[in-house]
């Protein structure tokens, strides 16, 4: 309890210690104040039952704002109308799901009643596929390189990680500025005698840049986890294989990759779950456009339920139930893989 020493007065203390002592005094004062009520409470309900008091605040907020809404969502998905309160909303059974799934050909959004939903789905599938693949490859290669005896590893690690901290809005604005018609990339293209491209008005280019930017922004996070995984592989395994005369490629195939597999799976699933929820960055960068080229699932939910008129809460809720089920499947796969890799 080093902090406690702050409450004793010693003749010489540095400024930092004094500041810390000051905050500790405030902290201790508030906590002591709470004890005035809580000690009698403990006397009444007994010390073992204090556990209920400790979980209560968290449980209350969790129940009201997470658990209850989750259950409510199923109910919402079975109502229609424009009212927000359930009493104003007629029950329609599975009609919302039927509307979402009403397609002659699921691979062609034009044949669907809710064509935007299916455009969002196929766009999301495309995005998730390439984004997760690119992310894992770049994160893995960077982690492997940083795991060599690289000088200045701390510096590189920080540089690659820095964009992770930036908000999606900031990331989107940075790249919007670079990709605009008179932006940096077009200046480089012109200096190389190439045609200028209006990146954010071209459907194919936007699909590429949206994936590129999200890899740029998140790669550092997965790289860190992979790097930690690589560093937990004991060095003597490599020493033993060096004595056996194994080639570096054999080392990689036979030691690094199998031992890194559990970490790689965690990274894969985390990246998958985040990619399915892609929203804010793209919303600011392209607003789903041009047309519906970068229109994804969460934006469908947001537009249907909140920004469009009329606000179709029922349809949005049904879509989010389907999204939630998809995420649940990924989570279960992760738990299952986590368990089986622990068993090995």
């Amino acid at each position: 309890m080093t902090q406690k020493s702050g409450s004793y007065s010693s003749p010489r203390r540095s400024v930092g210690e004094m500041i810390r002592a000051f905050f500790y005094e405030i902290y201790a004062f508030i906590m002591n104040l709470a004890d005035v009520v809580l000690t009698p409470l403990q006397r009444v309900i007994g010390s073992r039952n204090m556990a209920y008091f400790f979980v209560l605040p968290n449980l209350l907020i969790f129940g009201i704002f997470v658990l209850f809404p989750m259950l409510l969502n199923f109910r919402y998905a079975m109502t229609s109308g424009t009212g927000l309160f359930l009493s104003d909303r007629p029950f329609v059974g599975f009609a919302n799901y039927r509307a979402l799934l009403n397609c002659t050909n699921f691979f062609d959004p034009n044949t669907c009643v809710e064509d935007r939903f299916w455009r969002a789905i196929w766009n999301t599938v495309f995005f998730v596929g390439f984004q997760v693949l690119g992310m894992v490859i770049f994160a893995l290669v960077t982690a492997l390189i940083l795991n060599r005896g690289i000088r200045g590893r701390g510096f590189f690690r920080s540089v690659y990680f820095y964009p992770v901290l930036l908000s999606p809005v900031v990331v989107a604005l940075i790249w919007k500025w670079i990709l605009q018609r008179d932006g940096l990339i077009n200046a480089v293209l012109i200096s190389l005698d190439q045609e200028r491209v209006n990146f954010l008005l071209n459907a194919d280019w936007t699909k590429f840049w949206v994936i590129f930017v999200s890899i740029w922004a998140q790669m550092g996070f997965y790289m860190l986890i992979l790097l930690a995984g690589l560093q937990s592989i004991p060095a003597d395994i490599y020493e033993a294989s060096a004595i056996d005369g194994a080639s570096p490629w054999q080392d990689f195939r036979g030691i690094t990759l199998p031992l890194l597999m559990p970490t790689l799976f965690v990274v894969l699933v985390l990246a998958l779950i985040r990619a399915v929820q892609v929203f804010d960055q793209v919303y600011v960068l392209t607003n789903g456009g041009p047309g519906t080229a970068t229109f994804y699932m969460v934006q469908y939910i947001y537009n249907t339920g909140f920004s469009g008129q009329p606000q179709r809460f029922g349809l949005a809720a049904a879509a989010s139930v389907l999204l939630g089920l998809t995420l649940l499947i990924f989570t279960l796969i992760q738990l299952w893989l986590g368990r089986s890799s622990e068993a090995v």
Partner: peptide, 20 residues
């Protein structure tokens, strides 16, 4: 089990709770 459930999945009902 709710570690992985993001707010984007429960937007509508949480908004109802907030409104209430």
């Amino acid at each position: 089990s709710t570690l992985m459930i993001p707010i984007s999945v429960v937007l509508v009902p949480v908004f109802l709770v907030i409104t209430s």
